[in-house]
Design a protein around this nucleic acid. Structure first.
Lengths: 235, 235, 235, 235
DNA sequence: AATGAATGAGCCTTCATTCAT
DNA sequence: GATGAATGAAGGCTCATTCAT
């Protein structure tokens, strides 16, 4: 990425810059970094082709800014805040899943955040690293702690991680494999009702194992002092 | 895609064509259709740029052939044949999951099949449609029947589909979100041992809910005639 | 032809666009649409290859613009205005022929208009249709009316059309068959003097028949009511 | 043109070579030298791409042979033989025009000879020179002699040449400007009947001037000894 | 004698970037 | 501050030609 000569103020009084960001967000989410062209973005934003280079240095600069802003947005915050609730862990997990799944079918800005993530994972750019470290890791850590609490194992235990991935996989597959699901499951319409049922199912599906696992470890923990001892101790 | 004028003999004595296919498979899986260039592929195959045009008509023709062959390969067959086993459904499901997960860390041709699928889902090409209809739908149908048998619901029941997606999501996330997982989970090395543990976990995780669900529906089905009433009590 | 995204100001202060048009006009007239390359044109205009794409969308866009401008130029107007003269029809016909033939040996822009037409007729492009409808048909109609008046038959009468083609053929053969004429007629130098003699000859040659035809039809029209009966006695 | 390594016998017992020539003749006449590809020709002839190079050295060698054979064919001979008739010059001229015009609408091999000539004139190749010298000049000379006899002037007199070009122009315009004529003259169907009327018209149109011219020169030749003195003596 | 396979040159087009105003 | 104009690099594709068999 080329270094930007000047830092422009990102105040609200700079409509061109903002319009570029919104248009870029949509188009990058739709087509990914490479397939999107700055001409498409400029036209969609009603700006000149050179405006992108002027405001953001180059294409990668614009993209990086889009990714940065995308990760700061409310729905991510919503997920994070859901993780902070002082409710029972099961309810927190349910809330987290529901919040995330609901975003899949938002009408105004359909899942742009995760679409960008999906494109990044398929075709990484330099933005992926910061995306992982700034967003992926913190979110993962909170989820791991939550699950660890539920199954009575440390956050960095392999079983904890496996459970976290199992939950995450069930959620993201609806974003990543959308065309595949629509092709093999014609009734999948992602209406608000159906989305609620999906969220409930994922939570039920996951809690079934987690609660069963806790039961087993709890039973063993009667004899032992450290409940973190897991059934498969190897590693 | 330009139609190829003639059918070329695909004997083993056609090294250039084969080398092109192997190189294209690897590069397409690595970078996706658009980002891959026929020059890169030609150089990797030790052939001329025009060789692609000669053997496959154009870039899309080469890609289509790669996708077609990719979907015919042994591991897909392995998954399908696993679905045909006359073993108990639980064992079949375990075998299917294990077969698929093992392919993630194959040394010779690392998960190219699913990497191509991931690229297709992120940036669809005309090959996606046939990929869905030729591979996605048949596999999905077998999986749905298997799960339907286990939970006592029709294959096209929404709950059956939700379970299938939950299982599939847990599996494919290891391919689709690989950089993200590696970033948030440093210990994830995908050694053969670990891959086995992953497969076991996904099977345990999924069977926990499925077996519990069958127990409930079985109990209810004594009283009720229509098992399509969703037994989920919560919400 | 790719549609050009924006309308560029065609002011005189746009030298590159103008230089491209002039160079393209010459090269297209010289070699035809297919044989001319945008690299040759760009080099001749002192511009970059991509300038063609920027100003005209693509090669066909540039060509279409060349054809459009070519047909609007003065000499075509001259022919048309000659047809509007309120002089005796014979004089108008003479003027039309002379105007057209003179353009064959113009020093500044040698017969590019008709050379492009010749290439279009040999290898049609999408521009041919509009060339026929915008220029060919209107000019033909005026010529037909003029001849019809002279021979006392309707403009759309077959004999009127035959006469028009006979005149037109005598004129255009000097452009279309130029190499052939030069080869079989070494004294053909197309000096201004000789061009004048050519024009006079074509007019004399044509008026001989036309005036004789009018005499015959006039004589017969006293007796006959339907002048559409061809008065040609031979055969 | 690349020199052919060996001279192949052009006997009838070489069907591939013959089929190539026929296919090439049609396609070259249809699209011209540059636009025609040896692949199209090979496919149309049911032969291999390399067969062209094998039999004719290269593309230009095939084309040259096509042009050479085309010029030797019967209809050209027909025109030439018509010029040899010992009939009155007017009848000979009529026969020549009729023979040529009739070829325009031949059903089996529509005017390929003149279509190739038209392409050559629009985009000359090295074959043009020999085409002019082997065919153009001899035919022109015979026509000039014929006309010279009719108007009482030497064959190389400018007026003789002008008359010859006027006649030739009327004929070839039907081949060269075919799309233009069809566009501006919808009733032009080139049925056999209409073709006969066209031929008669061209003959009438031309003889009107020629016979009138002879009358004038004959009148003067009573006083003068050298009938080559023309009305407009300048030059 | 004939051909399937392969090649290098050249073409049109796209795109991010830069420059002058 | 902002933009219209222009550019160089790179990509896919076509085609005549050549090579090995």
């Amino acid at each position: 990425m080329k270094s930007i000569k000047r830092i422009h103020k990102s105040t609200d009084a700079d409509p061109t810059r903002e319009k570029l960001l919104v248009a870029a967000w949509r188009i990058f989410a739709d087509r990914g970094y490479r397939a999107a062209t700055i001409r498409q973005i400029s036209v969609a934003a009603g700006a000149n082709v050179a405006a992108v280079n002027y405001h953001f240095g180059d294409k990668l600069g614009l993209y990086t800014e889009v990714v940065r802003q995308s990760m700061q947005t409310a729905e991510i915050e919503a997920v994070q805040s859901a993780l902070d609730l002082s409710a029972p862990p099961e309810e927190i997990l349910r809330a987290v899943i529901r919040t995330r799944v609901r975003n899949i079918c938002r009408k105004d800005r359909p899942d742009w955040h995760f679409q960008i993530l999906a494109h990044e994972l398929a075709q990484p750019t330099p933005a992926l690293r910061q995306l992982i470290e700034k967003v992926g890791r913190p979110l993962a850590n909170r989820l791991l702690e939550l699950i660890g609490k539920m199954i009575g194992l440390p956050a960095n235990h392999e079983k904890t991680r496996l459970c976290a991935v199992s939950i995450m996989g069930q959620v993201v597959v609806y974003t990543f494999a959308d065309p595949l699901l629509k092709g093999a499951w014609p009734e999948l319409k992602l209406t608000p009702d159906q989305v609620e049922r999906i969220a409930d199912h994922i939570a039920d599906f996951s809690l079934s194992y987690i609660q069963g696992f806790r039961a087993k470890t709890s039973a063993r923990s009667i004899q032992r002092t450290r409940p973190s001892v897991k059934p498969r101790a190897s590693k």
